[in-house]
């Protein structure tokens, strides 16, 4: 079996928002919709102040609350762990958006464009099916499926890898198969200390945050 997951190394992220821009370009999301965004946090008090940049989005949970509450079965989880939305089934009730503890879902009632009038790219990428329904990060599922069909490896081959991961300038984001012990993400999880967002809720996010090396490796 395969379990696609994403890992963000918080020590590396510089908050450049390239992943956000890349996602917007790849998925043609309208203004104010960011399937991949980066939180810019300032913690501590002067002079001991730190800035932390945290990429967030759909966590593609093992037990997605959005899927359980969805009355129309528009939200589904694939066997490989990717949580999808069927835009043809969704009624736009936003119950999933309320149920998501990660504020990963959006609903846009009307078409809107960055500069008022649609640009060429926005015109080409505009999808009316996405209006007035729930939308969110798909882990670029189309790229993954198309890449797999060509025999490529998601997370390794850029053509089969989510756009945000491809664009990351600091190699903060990694993508791969958790079930494969030799995959890049499995290696990262084995070597580092990680946490998942709001783990106490039991949603089982498929998005891990690295914050330090494992204790035994600290001096390495």
């Amino acid at each position: 079996m395969t379990r696609w997951a994403m890992v963000a190394d918080l020590r590396r992220c510089v908050g450049c928002q390239t992943c956000t821009a890349s996602c917007k370009q790849a998925n043609a999301t309208p203004p104010e919709v960011q399937w991949r965004r980066v939180l810019d946090m300032e913690v501590g008090e002067y002079p001991a102040v730190k800035r932390v940049f945290v990429p967030v989005g759909c966590m593609h949970c093992d037990e997605p609350p959005c899927m359980h509450v969805c009355p129309s079965t528009a939200t589904k989880k694939r066997p490989d762990g990717i949580v999808t939305i069927d835009y043809e089934l969704c009624i736009g009730c936003s119950y999933c958006a309320i149920a998501c503890p990660y504020q990963a879902r959006y609903k846009t009632d009307r078409a809107s464009f960055a500069y008022g009038k649609a640009t060429v790219q926005e015109t080409q990428a505009f999808n009316p099916k996405r209006l007035a329904v729930a939308t969110k990060c798909t882990f670029c599922v189309d790229r993954i499926d198309a890449g797999l069909a060509k025999g490529l490896t998601p997370g390794i081959d850029p053509e089969a890898t989510p756009a945000c991961v491809n664009s990351c300038i600091s190699q903060t984001l990694s993508f791969g198969d958790l079930e494969d012990p030799h995959s890049n993400v499995s290696q990262l999880l084995a070597e580092n200390q990680t946490f998942r967002m709001h783990e106490e809720l039991g949603t089982g996010p498929g998005f891990y945050y690295i914050w330090d090396k494992k204790q035994g490796d600290a001096s390495a």
Binding site: M67, H68, V69, C70, P71, S72, T73, A74, L89, C90, I91, G92, C93, S94, Y95, K107, D109, L131, A132, V133
Partner: peptide, 19 residues
């Protein structure tokens, strides 16, 4: 709801959805 003409789809998930 965003898609009122699809309102009948609300009945598709009695297995887990309280709605």
């Amino acid at each position: 709801i965003g898609r009122p003409l699809r309102a009948m789809n609300v009945g598709f998930n009695p297995f887990t959805s309280w709605m």
